[in-house]
Design a protein around this nucleic acid. Structure first.
Lengths: 116, 116
DNA sequence: GGTCCGTACCTTGCATAACAAGACAGGCTG
DNA sequence: CAGCCTGTCTTGTTATGCAAGGTACGGACC
């Protein structure tokens, strides 16, 4: 069953594409957060996020699109942190995604369950 | 709203990644089918599939992985058709994906809805 | 028998995104 | 100064969806 595990990891990675981004936006509704904080929370939550190699490029994209704003804040115990905050555009994008997600996951679930 | 539409198309394309493949496998549980037939059904269903440029490379991958077997059959009205049938490995892969899909979509839905 | 159209397969080139691995740097403790 | 934890970010790999277009078979119509 070696292959199963490897296959599964690859399959999961593909499944996440285009979705992790919006999980990060959703997380930011709770307020500002910095990179490793987001990474920690989302990695625990469901294993929606696995690596910082995913997160930082993703955050850079969000910034370029104007979906988040950032501010540097010194830390008591380590290097300064870059805090990310949701913008209005970001909130709108998140709403649009949420609206699309419902029908999409229903459709996929229906296809998978349709044993007919 | 021009931007909304364009953005949505890109977002949807990413969302499909790694999932269309298993929708095709799921469709094949109903019995053999050929390319354009699958394309037609899945494109109607929910807009899970948009183009043959997606489908044929995908079917080639499934064949290489041994998840489907194919057979050529002459057609009464046009060129011969290549029919695709699910193999045991393919059915197992589909089951594994279905098992992963449940927790995944629940987790994403929870994160999106968590307004806390 | 030549031309057009619909059916059917497949390929090429591009854009996007997740990931592993690791580079770089601040600040603390010994 | 060395070692470690905390942070941010980059590089190279891999996988996939998609638009556009290429090839080919067969029937209908002049």
């Amino acid at each position: 069953m070696h292959r199963m595990v490897a296959t599964n990891a690859r399959v999961l990675a593909q499944m996440r594409k285009g979705i992790v981004e919006f999980c990060v936006l959703a997380h930011l509704r709770h307020g500002e957060a910095y990179g490793r904080e987001i990474a920690g929370t989302l990695a625990n939550d469901p294993a929606v996020l696995t690596s910082e190699g995913t997160l930082y490029p993703l955050l850079a994209r969000l910034r370029k699109q104007g979906w988040v704003e950032t501010s540097w804040t010194p830390s008591d115990s380590g290097p300064p942190r870059r805090y990310y905050a949701l913008t209005e555009d970001g909130a709108a994008a998140l709403e649009a995604f949420t609206a699309a997600w419902g029908p999409f996951h229903s459709a996929v679930t229906a296809i998978l369950e349709d044993d007919g």
